[in-house]
Amino acid sequence: MSETAALSRPRASDVLFLVLLGVVAMLFAGFTAAYFIRRPAPDWVPIAIPLWSWVGTAVLAASSVTLELARRRESTGLQRVSLLLGCAFLAAQLFSWSGLAQSGIALPSTPHGAFYFMLSAVHGLHVIGGLCALAWVTLSDRPLRLVAAYWHFMGLVWLYVLFLLAS
């Protein structure tokens, strides 16, 4: 509202964004509760976290760094690099899935595996959303601030998910 712009209020987009992060956080909090309740069951057979997943984690971390640099230096080139790294992360996740499938671990095989597939898929969908937003601001030359913050947040969520699954 331009008519009330002079008032010292938080920006509507900031409010919307922060609450959205709260929604995503609560989604993963729900999964966390399920994870800890399901884990003590006798049929819990742990799986090894696939190597590709660690590669993906490194790529995702690198994309956060390049995106942060892109934001600070206002560099479209680095923005495009981050986009590519984001896609590379998703590819690594897909490789990790096919690796698990090749070693005979399907969705119903073990609850640990089911959580791995499910959480990486839900996180991956959120990353795809972030990639779309990133592509949009890159192509239309809009401010990167909130998209970058979202991207870092999804990076942290992935580290959390990985910690949960690997611990």
Partner: peptide, 18 residues
């Protein structure tokens, strides 16, 4: 959102064999 999480798991139980 936690209900969304539950609904996703329910879908996997129904259609994914988990």
């Amino acid at each position: 959102p936690p209900l969304t999480a539950a609904a996703i798991m329910l879908l996997l139980d129904r259609h994914g064999g988990t």
